[in-house]
Structure formats: C-alpha cells, structure tokens
Nucleic acid binder design. Structure first.
Lengths: 192, 192
DNA sequence: AAAATAGTTGACTGATCGTTCTTAAATAAT
DNA sequence: ATTATTTAAGAACGATCAGTCAACTATTTT
C-alpha cells in the first residue's frame, strides 16, 4: 500500500452506522455520510463499496458490537438481572441524547422487510442472536431454580424477543416512560 | 364543480395507502402512486396536496379503517377471544398474499420516529387507540371474572400493545410461524 | 532520484426525485 | 350556443440522488 489512508476505517464505519441507525437506509444520502464522516465520497466508495455494501457492513458491525446482552450474563438474582436489562433498554430507547434511534436491526427489518435477501439474512441472524441470549439466560435461571422446571424455555425466549422489539416500537410512539415500564413489568411475571 | 372527477377519491386514497403501507414513505415515489392508482400526478396534487399531505390522509384512513380490534369485542371466553386475536394477527402478518406489510402505524413510527410532529401525533393517537381497545377488553374480562380483580388492567393493556408491536416486528425477521406462536402463547398467560 | 502504487479530491454523469405549469377537455351555468 | 369553472394530461422545472473518473498527492519500492 503506497499512500496510507487518512482515516480510520473502523471509526468511519461506526460513524456511518450511526447515521443509518438514526435516519434509516433510504433517508441517508451519500452526502450525509460524507458530512458525518468527513471522508470524501470517492474514498467511501473505494473503501466500502457502494451504499448497499456499506450498509451491510454497518449491519455486521452492529451485530458484533451490541453488548446489551452482556447484562444477562451478569451475576445476581435472575429476576433482578432481567429487570436491569429492561431498565437499561428503556433508558436507552427513550434517551434523547442517544437519539432515540431504537435498534438498528429492528429499524432495518421494518424498513427493508423481505426486500433484499442479503439484508434479511442479517436481520434473521441478529434476531436469532437475541433469542439465543435470552435462551441461555433462561436456562441458567432454570438450573438455578429461579424458573420452574416445566417452563418451556424456547417459548419464553421468543416471548422476550417479542417484548424487546415491542418496547423499541413503543419508544417511537410515546415518550412516556411509564408506558414502557408497565409493559416490562407484566413481562417480568414470566420469571416465576 | 364544472368537470367531474374521473376517479373515486376514497378508492384512490386506499390504493395510495396500500403503497405507503407496503413500501414506506421514503421508498414510495409519486410515480409509484401514479402507477398504482392510475391517476395523473397533477390530479393527485390537486386532490390530496403534496406527498406529505397525502401520506397524512393515508394515516388517518388507516386509523379509521383498522377493525382488527373488532375481534376483541366478539362473544366468547376471554382467553379464547384473545387467542383468536393473536391468531388472526399472526396469520395476517405472515401472509404473503397480504404482502407481509405489518402495521402501517408501526412501520411509520419506526421510519419517521419523532421527525415530523404531524406524523408523531397520529402515531401516538393510533397507539392510544390500540391501548384503549385492549383496556376495554380486559375490563370486560375482569368484570366477567376471567381476570383476577387485583390485576392492573392499564399495565396489562400496555403489555399487550407491546406484544402486538413485537409480533409485527418478529414477522419481518422470520417466516417461521412457530416463533410468533410461541411468543403469543406466553403472552396469553396473563389471562388468569 | 525515479518509478510504481495507492489514496484523495473536485467535477461531473445520467437518473430520479417532488412539484408546477400550460394547454386541452368536460361539465355547469348563463 | 356561449361562457365560466373544474379536472385531466403532457411536458418541463430545479434539486438531489447514487455513482464515476481523471488529475493530483503522498508514500513505498526500485
């Protein structure tokens, strides 16, 4: 490589992801990306390919970065751990400073749906990650006696995925924290 | 009015709504609307105003037309009624012939978020409609003894709203009916 | 020091976007 | 029958879109 790049690929990819996350794929123009990364159009194309390819890399980055589920692996009583997870989710989803962007994958699933297979593959994979995180959490809880043995952990995990997505949608329909807390409160009742 | 309109405003508005519903606001071009309604661009502008105004009218039409909650007012055991509601929702959300469009308001909330106040007002209003439908249903169930007196009906209603939205998102991440059914099954447990 | 290589840059492409305008056509009022 | 009024329709508007390319610059290799 003769002349070195003047920007950090990872940083720029994160900045691009931020824009797609906030505005969605269609509303994001190349010009937006240029302005928010400070990188020339041509360099973006040389480095990341076209808009669609760049977006796919942002989806991959999001999947690899989302550490919200780390909370589920922390120590503590299972019910309290789950409550902490929801609390943080609600905090984040409603936080104006964070841009109330929601979940990039959920946003993308809603915007692009089943249009492009290279996208739906990634949406599906992430959704599966989420389910698996909940599944593992619930299995641990069950082994610890915090969840009845007869409970169907797969069902419960999918239920939690649904609640998770539901809360992100709710956060786009209201700024009333109580609404999301009420929903999460009821959802917590499964931990018996 | 001298020369009469050659098209039915209501039919055309429904056709436009269909397109916005399927493709979202940003991905829908005036040309798309022209092709799916058979109405000239100029006539669309004369009749409905610009793209944004037309879209708002589609949101209003959607709100006034969504009769899915009629199921909740039907006769029968409360738990069975709720199950029927979820069954139909899942049927619709996954039905290819229906276009797997999801819920126009949820789609719009995710796409437009809190960008435009004239839109978020409508999103909020519809979301409140949904909550109220569930609330009334749950109150009837409680009076009928199908729901414990001590249950917080407002909380439960908001929980159901969250599940409803969650299922619509889930339907965009997978075609596996079992995933949605599992989530709905767990949600049904609140009816005790 | 010269050549080869790779990244940066500004200008530009054709296509499509939402929107408007002028002209023609159809009906109602006179 | 003529005029007034409203709608329809084709063409065009400037703006913006995603994407490209040749000229230029900085670094590595020879």
């Amino acid at each position: 490589m003769a002349r070195p790049r003047e920007f950090d690929q990872e940083i720029v990819l994160n900045q691009a992801m931020e824009v797609f996350w906030r505005k969605g794929y269609e509303r994001t123009s190349i010009q937006d990306l240029v302005e928010h990364t400070g990188v020339h159009r041509g360099s973006l194309y040389d480095t990341f390919g076209d808009k669609n390819q760049l977006f796919l890399q942002c989806l991959d980055l999001f999947r690899s970065k989302d550490r919200a589920f780390g909370i589920l692996e922390e120590e503590g009583e299972s019910k309290e751990v789950l409550r902490r997870y929801f609390d943080r989710l609600i905090d984040y989803a409603l936080n104006d400073d964070a841009g109330r962007k929601g979940c990039l994958i959920a946003n993308t699933a809603m915007e692009m749906g089943a249009i492009d297979s290279s996208i739906s593959v990634r949406v599906e994979a992430f959704s599966m990650d989420v389910e698996t995180s909940f599944y593992k959490f619930l299995m641990r809880a069950q082994q610890r006696g915090a969840l009845k043995k007869k409970k169907n952990v797969r069902e419960l995990a999918r239920f939690l995925v649904s609640i998770r997505y539901g809360l992100y949608v709710l956060a786009k329909t209201t700024t009333d924290r109580k609404v999301l807390e009420d929903a999460a409160n009821v959802a917590m009742l499964i931990m018996v």
